[in-house]
Design a protein around this nucleic acid. Sequence first.
DNA 1: ACCGGGCGGGG
DNA 2: GTGTACGCCCGGT
Length: 804
Amino acid sequence: MELTVRIIDLTYKVENGKAVIYLFCVTPDGQRVCVRDSTMAPFFWAEGVDSEKLLRLKTAEGWITDVRQEERKLHGVKKKLCKVFANMPKSIPVLSRLVKDQLGAIVYENDILFTRRYLLEKNLFSHKEVVAEGEWIASGLSVPLFEASVVRNGGDNKLGVPRLLALDIETYDSRGRIEPDKNPILMLGLVGDSFRKVVTWKRFSTEDKDIEFVTDETALLLRFKELLDMYQPHMICGYYSDGFDLPYIKKRADVLKVTLNVGLDYSPIFIPEGDDAARITGIPHIDIFKFVKKIMGRSMETEVFSLNAVASELLGEKKHDVDLDMLSKVWDSDPEKLEVYAQYNAQDAALTYKLCRHLWTNMEEFVTLIGLPIETVTRMSYSQLVEQYIFRQAQKHGELAPNKPDDAEMEKRTRMRLKGGFVYEPTPGLYHKVVVLDFRSLYPSIIISHNISPSSFRCSCCPQSHNTVVIAGEHYWFCENARGFLSAILEDVVTKRAQVKKMMKDVSGDEKKLLTSRSEALKLLSNSFYGYLGFAAARWYSFESAEATTAFGRQYIQSVITHAQDTGFSVLYTDTDSIFLQLGDKTKEEAKQFQNAINETLPDMMEMEWENFYPHGIFVALKGALGGAKKRYALVDEKGNMKIRGFETVRRNVAPIAKEVQENVLRIILKEGDVKKAAAYIRQTIKDVGQRKVEKEKMIIFTQLQKDIKQYESISPHVAAATRMQAKGIDIGRGSFISYIVGNGAGKLRDKVKLPEEAGEYDANYYITHQIIPAIGKIMEVFGHKAEDFQNDESQSDLSKFWS
DNA sequence: ACCGGGCGGGG
DNA sequence: GTGTACGCCCGGT
């Protein structure tokens, strides 16, 4: 019979000396089943050795079972190879080493995980339809088992919405230390589809029917298994559950000698070394933290990936505000107060559940793009995603995967330094009628247009090619006849994305969300190709390709600069892929004509886009800053929107008054074009601050403690504030938010720090010289003002009256 | 500038 | 599991 299912997880076992694949699957109606396939043998490739010799090779555990002659390409070059089959996956590293060392052969693809090899060889994709031919057999698993003689790709239909369960635990902790061997799990929160539960083992009165009491920690662990068996999740998720929740649960089960055989094959939770994926056989586990940090983080605002920060940004929802450091004390001596902690626990699980749902389409798009299981894909870095994607395509094209670099090669590669994009430094000043144009996806489009690939680099057929770029006096050219493998793949990704974007125009709702996620996944993938080429550990590493990509990029932007100047535009600033033009006497229409003219000279894949037109903008010098010139400008468009880059307005540890003054100064200059008014406004504000007419609230500096108070060597203002908070009985540690005011008084800054509620008068002089002046100084210097102009005038003498 | 080491998340 | 994260920040030189 035939069975149509979607793979969600897979593993292999050795049975009677043979590797057997177990595919954990979901049927179209949501049943969990397992498909067993014992038809594939592990193999690797060998070059430069004959079959006879190979077949004689044998070790105690491993031997070669078969050798077949086949042809494959490496970087486009055809090779005659031996496909070497072995008795077991684990024999592969041993045997391939012997083949290399004793027989002098070159070996390829001898480090491919067996489950990945299986999916590649059979062209199967996780979460997409697969068809198995075979029959149901007696199952030793907790789900039905199907023995397959054939498993094949069933098309592009995808997994429906899976049954999901989020988990979170609260633990006893002794003075902030996590000691799973000593301290028990106090609460277990589970949230699923119309499912919510907190299990705990100390009784307190509550109205919440989702809170369930058990006798002790052992009972809590057993209840966890029961609930898993009852709910039958397709997947489970947690927040940093690879590094905390699941290892903790596993450890407690070991300590208490509880059999926690939650795997669908009755195996226990598997915790690897380090903080890699915690696994439950047959139930994929997603660590939301990992996926957010590695993949989604790039397109997010937050720099902190705590559950609270991530949930706030993505869901607009926060964790419950409870004092977690008190949990252990409350547990010991005041259990009636435990309810808030149970609610906190449930909320954490709920946020994790919602995040997983929110990010589902993003995760699934990557899964169906790469084809590997969700458990793997959600933990991969960009370069791994690119590599796995290339690997899958290589298979289709009969291309071998190049070997990973050895230690010596790695070292060599890490020392290489890439020259980046071209920056045309702006002259500080106020500018009017600024047009910004930028290249759409500059690097991907260059790689495609110039056929940049290891296989097309310095081909022998077109040395006179005009597809050449010169780097340090050397000619780099790429073939004009044969399509390079990597650039062809990348073109395919970009083309797919264009199709998806086209489709997006005609749909809405869930379908639109799906296509948006697909487009984002394809964009992230295509934008990562360039970085991948220069990534030291990459199989398809090509420093020349990476170098050529940035070199062509510099060439393009420089030619745009020249062209712009020849056309009579004044170039203000450029960086890598964007150019800022001053219109002067010219019109926007002429700038558009210029843009069109540039586009006519560009290859098809490349395009200069109209970013925006800005009536006014200022550019500020950044002398003395580390790392050379940085973007520091402010522009205002016709709708009045300000585009501000590189000013400290965004920084947290600056007083609101300084942010306010800076924003207002930029607004007055950009929108009203009145520098005198801005200067007058600054003088007035400084005067007001000097006379303390500006309210205290605007002087509160807000920051976060990066480590525990004791660990600070020097007492900076925020540490002094933290110490004061601690003295008041507030529990302060790493991550605590600190707010303070610099008060009037003598001595060092740290002696003047006051908490907002205890502060009397603020130190006006400090706020003027250390907050306001730095925020506007660089801007006003552009207009010939010196910082002292604002400090030495009458406001300062007014201020002096208040000095004691 | 260049490196070596340590950390993130969780309680 | 046919393995050995990775990128950033800090402090020292």
